[in-house]
């Protein structure tokens, strides 16, 4: 299990014991974490699983791909240098304890 914490836009935080190998998006959706939609199911077609990786985790998570960058063009909330599509972040043991912040709106 890998722990991941979602911090909602209103500051409420939810920590989930996630399955190793699952994405940050799928983990949120499977555990009723509101604030991540994941409309296209992780096909990188919708930009409704936008999250901001916590500064402390930025290096470990790594940077977004060009495709991801392109899709974030259509994200509803502000895109920053820490923006990622959470469907593209796979939970590996190295990411145990990961913290992501959720935007105000996904749609």
């Amino acid at each position: 299990m890998v722990k991941v914490t979602y911090v909602a836009h209103d500051g409420e935080s939810t920590t989930i014991d996630a399955e190793e190998g699952a994405s940050v998006m799928k983990t949120a959706v499977s555990n009723d974490v509101d604030g991540i939609v994941g409309e296209c199911g992780g096909s990188m077609m919708c930009a409704t699983c936008h999250c901001y990786v916590d500064e402390a985790w930025a290096d470990k998570v790594g940077t977004r791909s060009d495709d991801e960058d392109d899709m974030l063009e259509g994200a509803t909330s502000e895109v920053t240098e820490r923006s990622r599509l959470s469907c593209q972040i796979k939970l590996t043991p190295e990411l145990d304890g990961l913290v992501v912040h959720l935007p105000e709106d996904q749609i």
């Binding site: 495709d67 960058d69 899709m71 063009e73 259509g74």
Partner: peptide, 11 residues
């Protein structure tokens, strides 16, 4: 394979 154009047009 032109997601950026797609997303801009959607907006």
């Amino acid at each position: 394979n032109a997601a950026r154009v797609h997303m801009k047009v959607r907006r």
